[in-house]
Simulated scan of single mutants.
Amino acid sequence: MNKPSSSEREALLIALLTRLFTGEITEGQLLRTLRKDLLNMSQTEYATLVGVSRRTLSDIERDTGSPSLAVLNAIFKPFGLKAGLLPRNPALMKKLLAENGKPTL
């Protein structure tokens, strides 16, 4: 499998984050797709890269367990992402995304 170009990586990341923010996919599904489609890595390879056990990575991808913020930040760091605060209500998130694509402070 060929690795996607920089622009393809960015487009995939934006599409997946939009799906995450609108509640279409979970954080675990996001991570699994990014790991497989962008890096073409096995769970074992990726777990070693980010410094967590394969079991921890598997649990996160299956949306089970309760990873700490430090673990979440470690597993999403290779994709330029970090854990943050988002509205739990999908309707509010859609409204935020619709208003210029980003909330204002």
Rank of each mutant, 00 (worst) to 15 (best):
N2R: 15
N2M: 14
N2F: 15
K3A: 10
K3L: 13
K3E: 05
K3R: 11
P4I: 06
S6F: 11
S6Y: 10
S7N: 15
S7G: 13
E8P: 04
E8H: 08
E10M: 11
E10S: 07
E10Y: 08
L12A: 15
L12N: 10
L13S: 12
L13V: 03
I14K: 15
A15F: 04
L16M: 12
L17H: 05
L17M: 10
R19K: 15
R19P: 07
L20T: 02
F21Y: 12
F21G: 00
F21N: 04
F21K: 00
T22W: 02
G23E: 00
I25Q: 07
I25L: 09
T26C: 13
T26R: 11
E27C: 02
G28N: 05
G28H: 03
Q29C: 04
L30N: 01
L31A: 00
L31W: 01
L31I: 00
L31T: 00
T33P: 01
T33R: 05
L34T: 04
L34Y: 03
R35V: 03
R35Q: 01
K36G: 04
L38A: 01
L38M: 03
L39D: 01
L39Q: 02
N40P: 04
M41E: 13
M41T: 02
S42E: 10
S42M: 02
S42G: 07
S42N: 07
Q43M: 14
T44W: 01
E45N: 12
Y46N: 05
A47F: 02
A47N: 03
A47D: 03
V50I: 14
G51K: 13
V52A: 08
V52S: 07
S53P: 05
R54W: 05
R54Y: 06
R55N: 13
T56F: 14
D59P: 09
D59S: 08
I60V: 14
R62W: 10
D63F: 10
D63N: 11
T64D: 07
T64C: 09
T64F: 04
T64A: 07
T64K: 07
T64I: 12
G65P: 00
G65E: 04
G65Q: 03
L72H: 01
A74Y: 06
A74D: 01
A74Q: 06
I75D: 04
I75E: 05
P78V: 03
P78Y: 09
P78C: 06
F79N: 07
G80K: 06
L81K: 06
L81H: 01
K82V: 13
K82T: 14
K82I: 13
G84W: 00
G84Q: 00
L85N: 06
L86P: 05
P87K: 02
P87A: 05
P87Y: 00
R88Y: 01
R88G: 03
R88C: 01
N89P: 00
P90R: 08
P90C: 08
A91F: 13
L92N: 00
L92Y: 04
M93A: 14
K94C: 05
K94H: 07
K95E: 14
K95M: 14
K95A: 13
L96A: 06
L97G: 05
A98Y: 11
A98F: 14
E99P: 07
E99V: 09
E99T: 10
P103Q: 11
T104Q: 12
L105W: 11
L105F: 13
L105Q: 03
